[in-house]
Nucleic acid binder design. Structure first.
Lengths: 200, 200
DNA sequence: TCAATAAGAGACGCAACGTATCTTAGGAGC
DNA sequence: GCTCCTAAGATACGTTGCGTCTCTTATTGA
């Protein structure tokens, strides 16, 4: 492409590449994503991309982090169970097919590139959604639905873990029935167990 | 390779290919696995493999299923908690790094090949380990540690799901601390919750 | 014994990899 | 405003593995 456009640099260029990566992901998925296609879409060249990110997985992770997380307000629905269902549905909507395939792909490469593994781990652990659970539990305690508990960090992560696992093994969005199952057969019992046998 | 060896066929040949696949998986992992290398190791040619399996993922799944599952006896340790810890450790030992990377790889391809997705789903759901949980719970009920419960199918799958998720995001075998966390902060509370608030 | 079938060898065009080289634009410092 | 110097961008390269194809030859079972 001759000089009709001015040459981009730094921050600006980087954003363009990450946006192009995200667009490619949406269109062709992780397995179909090629550095060459990203370069073409961003109207730059492979070299520029390789200068910044050492692997496809690193690029994709950067693009993922670059995507502004849509903030969601979690309303008080008046009961612990419906609060949880709402939360699970919110998470499930976010972990769609493209997302799952991307995570599977990045996971696969994480075994070869330790630095990717670390980035991925951080990404999955830092999810702001985890805090929501404690808020929901606190509300339930205030209502008297549950004795007050401090939910362990591990238990806070479970909703996202379960939904991700399910989405990845099904290769399709979660059905309402599955979500109800996760809440009624797993998570709600777990919270009741935690609350009524504290510590142990 | 000229005809020093007699030409293999059918069943016999198939086993040789699946064994070669498993060996390649162990050595180079899923991401490094190539059909050409498998063919070379099995002393056959690509054509023969492509005639039987449409994709790398399908071949790997077949090799996985072909691996004879090591049968493990699950002893009665005298308490629900230690029974569970023993079970979790058994599962975790089985889901080692190679296994996790393989599953991640197959999952990635499952999104493109629906028939692979189905095979994978079957493989993950049919795990004989699921039944163990109900046995352990029944024993605990007999001891009086827990009211008797019928654990829902979804809840039976949780141990394997959690361990797999953890192994895949860590890229390393689970530590004892993690296993203890999964039992104490998640699964044991869940069972107590299920047992003391049946149905709901 | 002979035909049908499947194994095995190899060549193919293709796509993307990751690297290396070179030119040129644009920003910083003076 | 001029000049460096850095980074952008283009392109070409060898490599690897893909998946398909064609052709020969061994084996089997009727």
């Amino acid at each position: 492409m001759p000089a009709s456009k001015t040459r981009r640099r730094g921050e600006h260029l980087e954003r363009a590449i990450l946006d192009a990566t995200w667009a490619e992901l949406s269109e062709t998925g992780y397995s179909g994503l090629t550095i060459e296609a990203v370069a073409a879409r961003a109207a730059t060249s492979k070299t520029v991309i390789y200068r910044r990110w050492p692997s496809r997985a690193a690029l994709v992770l950067a693009a993922w982090n670059h995507q502004a997380p849509v903030s969601v307000d979690e309303p008080d629905t008046g009961s612990l169970r419906t609060d949880l269902l709402t939360l699970f549905v919110t998470i499930a909507r976010r972990v769609d097919t493209m997302m799952s395939e991307m995570i599977a792909g990045v996971m696969g490469e994480a075994f070869r590139h330790p630095e990717v593994a670390e980035l991925l781990r951080d990404r999955l652990r830092a999810a702001p959604l985890h805090d929501r659970v404690q808020q929901i539990v606190d509300r339930a305690a205030r209502r008297g639905e549950l004795p007050p508990v401090r939910v362990p960090a591990r238990a806070l992560r479970i909703p996202l873990d379960l939904i991700r696992t399910e989405a990845m093994t099904c290769g399709a969005p979660l059905t309402d029935a599955t979500i109800t199952e996760l809440v009624d057969d797993v998570y709600l019992p777990m919270l009741h167990g935690l609350a009524s046998h504290p510590d142990r």
